[in-house]
Computed example of a mutant assay.
Amino acid sequence: MSLFGLAVVLAVGLAGPLLAAPARARVPVAVGEVLAGVVIGRTGFGWVRPEEPVLSFLATVGFALIMLVAGSHVPLRHPALRSGLRRGAGLAGLAGILAVPAGFGVAYLTGTGHGELYAVLMASSSAALVMPAIDESGLRSTPVVATIVQVALADTVCIVAVPLVMDPGRAGTAALGALAVLAAGAAGFLGVRWLRARGLLARVQRISIVRGFGLELRSQLILLFVLGGLAQAVGISVMLAGFVSGLALAAEGEPRRLARQLFAVTDGFLGPVFFVWLGASLDLRPLAVEPKLLGLAGLLAAGAVLVHAAAVLARQPLALAVLASAQLGVPIAAVTIGTREHLLTPGESGAVLAAALISVMVTGLAARAAQRRQARTEGESPR
């Protein structure tokens, strides 16, 4: 791949920010980048070959970084996690239980045989989408606390579950590989804690800031790539390596300087490369000729919303219940693994991603509905 080709990939990726710019649209940047990739990839003009080694490698690094950022958004240090743990865990458990028959029902109706995967997709959520939506909308209440916990738990569990359910024949091997990555990530986290407790980390950070060495970013990337290399060595996706690195960062507390550096590398370069590559890898043409695949996308999206909406039975406000159904990281992980390993049927990857995009739009509406409900409630409170 030439530098000119890389420039083309980054240029078409600007479709993401352009579509996300209107405040009312609330379209995630990643959606526009994936759509741009669809236009120039297998579905569209074929200008980009996703199997090209350099582009594929850059996309892998971008995928790991995106999952790192997603993991760092899990609010492990948020005070709400402890206070709302029981209720949030109950809501996540309810969605998980209901997702099992729903997932197998969709697999039966569409004849794909991927019931386990569909169940995980429907039960999943996205802290990277929900947390910013809650912050931007100024939502605050006991049910909101429960939603935060629910989303954090669902995001973490489903990310770990995706590689296990996608290839049940290798579930045992994948589980052992996942445990190895988790253990290595825990060891890295404990090592950082040890350095911080002895003041060594603070000293290194001061030197890095004064001298402009960028040591925090370098250290974080080294840990990420060590875990990613381990993941590849044991035969699992770098997705888990990235997410574990992000969880370790969230548990320790992400310094603002490192957050800005990760944002620059991920959102400014490798993230767009990954999402354009992902869109270019998809062949959405079967969706136009196979009503079954369109039905699959609709059923997955509707199933995710309904499974989470059932939280109203536990007296959770409907808007917040639907907000928790936001999906992005888990479906993208499933599509990426399925595309690389040829585990999904032709067109199925597009249907899974289309369902995720539908859920993003639905949850955008849910966030606004929750904001209006809170405004009405506060307006009706005694003066």
Rank of each mutant, 00 (worst) to 15 (best):
S2T: 15
L6I: 15
A7T: 14
A11N: 11
G13H: 07
A15L: 15
P28E: 01
V29S: 00
L35C: 01
A36W: 00
A36F: 00
R49D: 11
E52I: 02
E52D: 15
P53V: 02
F57S: 08
A59Y: 00
V61P: 01
V61H: 01
F63I: 02
G71M: 04
H73Q: 15
L76H: 09
H78Q: 08
R82Q: 13
L85F: 15
R86N: 10
R87Y: 03
G88I: 12
A95E: 10
V100C: 05
V100P: 08
A102H: 03
G105F: 05
G105R: 07
A107H: 10
A107Y: 08
Y108K: 09
G111K: 09
T112D: 12
H114V: 04
L117H: 03
Y118H: 03
M122W: 03
A128D: 05
A128R: 04
L129N: 10
M131S: 04
E136K: 14
S137H: 12
T142H: 12
V144G: 09
Q150I: 06
V157Q: 13
I159Y: 00
V162F: 02
V165F: 07
D167G: 04
G169P: 11
R170S: 14
R170P: 05
A171N: 05
A174D: 03
L176Q: 13
A183Q: 09
A183S: 14
A183G: 14
R193C: 08
G199T: 11
L200A: 13
R206W: 07
S208N: 12
F213N: 08
L215N: 07
L217H: 12
L221R: 07
L227N: 03
G228W: 05
A231N: 07
Q232T: 13
Q232Y: 10
Q232C: 03
A233Q: 06
A241L: 04
G246I: 04
G253K: 08
P255I: 10
R256Q: 13
R257N: 08
L258F: 10
L262K: 13
L262F: 06
A264S: 14
T266F: 00
D267C: 07
V276A: 01
W277F: 02
L278V: 00
L278G: 00
G279H: 00
G279Y: 00
S281G: 06
L282Y: 00
A288T: 14
P291G: 04
K292E: 14
G295S: 07
L296I: 11
G298A: 09
L299G: 03
V305D: 02
P317E: 12
L320S: 13
A321I: 08
V322C: 10
A324T: 15
S325W: 08
L328F: 12
P331T: 11
A333V: 11
V335E: 00
V335C: 01
T336G: 01
T336V: 08
G338S: 12
G338D: 10
T339A: 11
E348R: 07
S349P: 11
G350K: 04
A354K: 03
A355C: 06
S359V: 11
V360F: 02
M361F: 14
T363Q: 14
A375M: 12
T377R: 15
E378C: 11
P382G: 06
